[in-house]
Amino acid sequence: MAMTSTKISGFAITGAGVAAAYALSSLWPVAGALTVAVVLGIVAGSTPLLTDEHRQAVARLTKRLLRAGVVLLGLQLAVPAVLALGAGTLAAVVVTVAVTFLGTLILGRLVGVRRGLAVLVATGFSICGASAIAAMEGVVEREDEDVATAVALVTCYGSLALGVLPLLAHVFGLDATRTGSWAGISVHEVAQVVAAAGPAGAAAVAIAIVVKLSRVVLLAPVVALVGAAERTRRGGHTPLVPLFVLGFLAMVAIRGTGLVPAFALDVAKTASTLLLAGALFGLGCAVRLGSLLRGGGRALLLGLLSTLLVLATGFGTLTAFT
């Protein structure tokens, strides 16, 4: 009976956190419900409001929500639309993701950031922000604070990029297609991509979203590769390919059949965001604000350098390949 009560409290706490995240994110859409959820989790976890039993209940729920949310994320990927971008743009996306991911890992080592945090920042900045961080945190060895720090950096520097990129696009004389492609290949979160491409018009936004989703396609192979590397480091104690990654790929394949109705895709998109928001709220609850702030300077430097890297690489690859 006590276990059932604890489960109910875990659902209730997480549900309240997600509801509050959605309400607050409506006031600042650029941040998004996922970012607000992890911030609220940190606030809740840093106060005496949650008992140890409550924290354990939320933690048990977190992993299930996370994996289910990542699996449903696969239904957002329309492979034909991605392929329609053309070989040049797709090559630019692959090179940009690879250079940003590997470059951020190297930069993390140079500035003295923990390996787990560097991997999470590299994943979020190179692929798709908080969603990618949520997917990666389950396969890499990291501290609880690393997840919250990585999400905070994505929000901070993604917001900076959405202001800087339109200005640079104007200075460079880029048309709507180029501006949209650069936003999609370089800016971190989907909402931030839309905001960055918005000043160039609706056509730029449409291109930006498709280019952004082409980066999301690379989430599964990157997580699988890191999982394999972690398996080697830990002596074979982690799955070679996590089951939720296979589920993500299965959903991509199902979406590719064209048989899933539009309303079901809309429901899946909302459900994925809700599940990931719940997972990030739970991850935030495990964080202690004091320990999160102690390593802030080096993390901020890594976020800045990674943002400059993805912007420069994205512009360079698009110029070279398209």
Results as ranks from 00 to 15, higher is better:
57 A>C: 08
57 A>Q: 08
164 V>W: 08
9 S>W: 14
218 L>C: 08
2 A>V: 15
122 A>P: 01
126 S>W: 10
155 T>M: 09
120 L>V: 00
300 L>W: 02
17 G>Q: 05
118 A>T: 07
66 L>R: 07
16 A>G: 15
283 L>D: 05
276 L>N: 02
120 L>T: 00
272 S>Y: 13
278 G>Q: 03
308 L>M: 12
140 V>G: 02
64 R>K: 13
204 A>W: 04
106 I>N: 02
132 A>G: 09
233 R>Y: 10
56 Q>N: 12
5 S>M: 14
159 S>H: 08
138 G>W: 10
287 V>Y: 03
105 L>E: 06
92 A>T: 07
215 R>T: 11
306 S>N: 15
273 T>N: 15
292 L>W: 12
64 R>Y: 15
53 E>K: 09
294 R>G: 06
264 A>F: 12
99 V>M: 08
5 S>E: 12
85 L>H: 01
246 L>Y: 13
277 A>G: 07
92 A>R: 06
45 G>P: 04
195 A>P: 03
226 V>I: 11
22 Y>W: 13
320 A>S: 06
36 V>F: 04
319 T>P: 00
278 G>P: 06
25 S>E: 01
114 R>K: 09
177 T>C: 03
46 S>H: 02
270 T>P: 04
207 I>D: 06
301 L>I: 10
294 R>S: 10
84 A>M: 05
225 L>E: 13
181 S>W: 02
284 G>P: 00
31 A>F: 08
73 L>H: 03
267 V>L: 15
60 R>S: 12
104 T>I: 10
12 A>D: 05
305 L>E: 01
238 T>E: 13
135 A>P: 02
76 Q>P: 07
230 E>W: 03
295 G>M: 02
101 F>E: 01
153 L>H: 07
253 A>T: 08
92 A>I: 02
285 C>M: 14
147 V>N: 12
12 A>K: 07
90 L>R: 10
88 G>S: 04
300 L>D: 00
314 G>R: 07
178 R>E: 10
159 S>A: 14
271 A>V: 14
103 G>H: 13
165 L>Y: 01
231 R>C: 11
241 V>E: 00
135 A>C: 09
8 I>W: 07
205 V>K: 05
170 H>V: 14
19 A>K: 10
140 V>Y: 03
302 L>P: 00
224 A>N: 05
